[in-house]
């Protein structure tokens, strides 16, 4: 189904991002090879200017990929009006083997681009650009991810034909057996609530403590790393809990577990703040942990500031997320009705 306006737009965005990426890889190669802040040659000045270009391009790529991921989800939802058996985006993504892997790679990609931008911001805060080589070297790690993302997306779109009969979220997330992975997870709804709200509260409190500790200068890098690992795990389990349990309360239908329908106007775009707060908190938690490996003295104060602020933001976002996630459950349990 490449002849469809969503497919065309997604492909166009990938081409644009790919073009930017390749251009910044050329810059990255030269910087990794020749950049030396102590030199004052013409090449060095040129490289400093090119560093500006690559950062602008990658920030742009990040923006494009963010839009592309949103569009991918919306496209999947639109395809469900054409594919037999698909009732929402989940069904469309399941129509062939590339849909969900493409989405997951896209999400991981956004995390990577986001972290790159954080590194860049920290780097340009010092006139010595201590992270110049590191961040440009990182581009060679991110680029294969981008290629994988684009390939999966093209494979998904090209292999999508309207006569394929697919199954939908009701089958995938609730039935046992080969088609569904719902109860195979051995997590009851209570356990999921416990993970979502218990784990969330624990991480929120830890983040708040870390914020206080960072403010007084007594924080330890290992504490931040443990906290970051916690957030990374929470990303996986929290997402499962949203899909398997919270979504049913949002839709007030036990077998409707679509992670994407809540982004639609019928549910007042409830999914946007929910996912934004969730992924935002996870990003703050994980990125501040990753930054503990940055040892350059010139940017330590900036790293420290970032970690302190991101702990505060992670705390606030996770609070908002838990309130948002709890709202539909409360409405249903107490009022006996759905929130919308």
């Amino acid at each position: 189904m490449l002849v469809n306006i969503y497919s065309i737009t997604l492909s166009l965005l990938s081409i644009v991002a790919g073009f930017f990426f390749l251009r910044s890889l050329i810059v990255a190669f030269r910087i990794v090879r020749y950049f030396n802040i102590d030199e004052d040659s013409r090449l060095q000045i040129r490289l400093e200017d090119e560093g500006l270009l690559s950062s602008a391009l990658i920030q742009f790529c990040c923006f494009i990929q963010l839009g592309g991921t949103l569009l991918f989800v919306l496209a999947a939802d639109d395809f469900s009006t054409v594919l037999a058996g698909a009732m929402c985006g989940t069904g469309s993504l399941l129509a062939n083997a590339y849909g969900f892997p493409a989405l997951i790679v896209k999400l991981v990609g956004i995390f990577c681009y986001g972290f790159w931008i954080v590194l860049h911001r920290i780097d340009i805060s010092s006139p010595a650009f201590p992270l110049m080589k590191l961040k440009h070297g990182l581009l060679f790690v991110i680029f294969p991810l981008f290629l994988l993302d684009t390939s999966l997306q093209i494979l998904y779109l090209a292999n999508l034909t309207p006569d394929i009969v697919t199954s939908c979220c009701g089958t995938l997330f609730t039935e046992k057996g080969p088609d569904g992975f719902g109860p195979n997870l051995a997590f009851s709804a209570t356990n999921q609530f416990l993970l979502l709200f218990g784990g969330g509260s624990l991480l929120a409190i830890t983040s708040l403590f870390l914020y206080k500790m960072l403010s007084t200068g007594s924080a330890n890098a290992w504490l931040l790393r443990i906290n970051g690992t916690g957030w990374a795990l929470y990303c996986v389990f929290g997402l499962m809990a949203i899909i398997l349990t919270i979504s049913s309360y949002v839709y007030a239908m036990p077998y409707h577990n679509c992670p994407f329908d809540m982004l639609k106007p019928e549910y007042y775009f409830f999914g946007y703040p929910l996912y934004f707060t969730f992924f935002g908190a996870v990003f703050c938690g994980v990125s501040s942990a990753l930054l503990t490996w940055i040892r350059a003295n010139e940017v330590q104060s900036m790293v420290f500031n970032y970690q302190r602020n991101s702990m505060k933001i992670a705390f606030l976002l996770s609070l908002c997320f838990m309130i948002l996630a709890a709202a539909p459950v409360f409405f249903y349990r107490l009022g006996g009705t759905d929130i919308f």
Binding site: I8, T9, L12, A56, F60, G67, L71
Partner: peptide, 23 residues
């Protein structure tokens, strides 16, 4: 969705074409 599609189809390519010359 229509607005996002249109935006991605028209504005993003324009930015793409203008960014490198701007730099």
């Amino acid at each position: 969705n229509d607005l996002l599609l249109l935006f991605c189809l028209s504005v993003v390519p324009y930015w793409c074409a203008a960014l490198i010359p701007a730099w």
